[in-house]
Amino acid sequence: MGLSGKDLTGLRNVSPGEIQLILDTAAPMKEIIKRQIKKVPILRGRTVVTVFYETSTRTRTSFELAAKYLSADAVNIAAATSSVKKGESLKDTARTIEAMGADVVALRHPMAGAAELLGGCLGARVINAGDGAHEHPTQALLDLFTVREKKGRIEGLKVAIIGDILYSRVARSDIWGYTKMGAEVRLAGPATLMPPGMEKFGVKVCSCLEEALDGADVINVLRIQLERQQHGLFPNLQEYSRLFGIDRERLRLAAPGALVMHPGPMNRGVEISAEVADGLQSVINEQVTNGVAVRMALLYLLIGGGAQNEANY
């Protein structure tokens, strides 16, 4: 069994079985990362291009290392330094990249739907590395991997996602991922940052942080962007922190041994206290390692030996 789609644009259209496969494949990949010589020849001669229209250190580096550990050639195109600045459209940029022989394109873009647009005009596989407020599927996969590794399961766990749901692509992918894998998802955040229609996702919108944290096994803390305050979506950071910040006191409301997660970069002292971020229950650094493993698994499944149905494309 492999992945059914050509691209990975989001978790909405990925089946629980496929998520399971990716997570199962990521486990041996993590072993490779732990070796002294972190290189296997699985993707020798293949090319992975990361195209980033937004600045990102973590995700871009993670994709690049994932490709390199599997012996693929990895190239980054930073939009700020490319012909994009000269007015080239996303489609034309993509065709240029393909003409150079890319097998996989990992795209980060500020606009929702960009990965689907790209996938539709490329023969190469496209992995969405975050598009606007739409999805960030590899982040959710690494979250799921981390939870499964630490808790032994995902099904039946109580997962709280806290903060700016409206603008968060991580939240959307996490919601699809967790619910597909059988977890119970609760959301809490300012009402102005809670998008409409959440009940249709099969999640619970809590009226306050405490309700969401009560007995939670996993706490996913989202980054709050200062510009949301500037646009009048909440009054000020102090108030945000007081209502939705995760500190040691509030962590006690969760189940004993609850995991604290954050997609980074963190605003310490705002959405998460330094104490909690660096505390024993925090798996934030582990998430970063797991991100590389999950991306290795994806690359392998898309263009390596895992892509048994490659001929179909």
């Binding site: 909405r12 929702a112 739907g113 598009d131 606007g132 407020a133 739409h134 999805e135 692509r169 959307r172 998008p195 409409p196 229609g197 959440m198 249709k200 996702f201």
Partner: peptide, 13 residues
Amino acid sequence: HEGYISTVLGLKG
């Protein structure tokens, strides 16, 4: 339109 679909797609409603 602002609603479930705009939330799914991550487009401002």
